[in-house]
Amino acid sequence: MHDLAALTPLGAAAPRTDRVGAISVTEVTDRAIASVSTRNGKAKPFATAAKALFGIDLPAPGQSAAGPVWTLIWTGPDQWFAEAPFATHEDIAAIAKDALGDTASVTEQTDGWVRFDIEGPTAVDMMERLCPLPARRMKTGAASRSIIEHMGSLVICRAEGRHFSVIAPRSFAGSMHHALMASARSIA
């Protein structure tokens, strides 16, 4: 076991949660992410191998699918993010590549991103001050990339109307957190 300590995207030893009024903004660091891209002419064997590994069907454009271990998020034509618990899947790229073989290209993406979960009954009021996506109409599982305060971000509706994940490039963590807090205070 290596002896290097990890830091959260916000630069602390442990992830933070902030509460403003009815909203909580939680830094989520316990998920690993790999990007998975089908290789040419391998659509069918890829689908088979993916189903075997992930246990769930590949979601369609604009969607995510959550299983007991893996969550899959469509990110582009023939491309998905595959999320799994960091504690058991830290070397997620190797795990996925092992299972998918030459049917797909796999890259480790875990530390490329910072994830903030926004929860509360007024979560949509907050989302509609952050990005052009029709948050009020997003159903559970809807997932789409968009822009939040000039930062390209993936927005996933974890629970319709009250729980969203915002996933932005890790280096923007401080700026994203600041933007989310300002928005939460604005609607408090």
Partner: peptide
Amino acid sequence: HRELWFHEQGDRS
């Protein structure tokens, strides 16, 4: 006019 747009802040198509 037929023109090329890149969905940079989206799905990169």
